[in-house]
Amino acid sequence: MASDGDKGKSSLPNNNAKASAIREDGAFWSIFAYLISGLLFWGGMGALADHFLNTSFLILIGLLIGLSAGLGLIWMRFIRQ
């Protein structure tokens, strides 16, 4: 808990470090969300395609596309700066 004594001083570097640590925390959850939505969306597309075309390999291709899309977005949003 932030004590009230700290608030008056509010030394800038300390506050900045805290803020960037908190943003990092959010970034990890965002990475998780990107991976999940990539897999779910393109995997779901693959499953639908499988269902209508009576094949069984398209879901695997969909999952791989989703995985690479998620990783690509993470690369662009968080790693390449």
Binding site: E24, A27, F28, I31, F32, L35, I36, L39, G43, L63, L67, G70, L71, I74, W75, F78, I79, R80, Q81
Partner: peptide, 22 residues
């Protein structure tokens, strides 16, 4: 270090989620 940690986390997590879906 931050981008490297993000990259490692993303790759490890990707494998875990891929396993979950499979």
């Amino acid at each position: 270090l931050q981008p490297i940690a993000f990259l490692g986390f993303a790759l490890a997590e990707a494998l875990a989620l891929f396993g979950l879906v499979l």
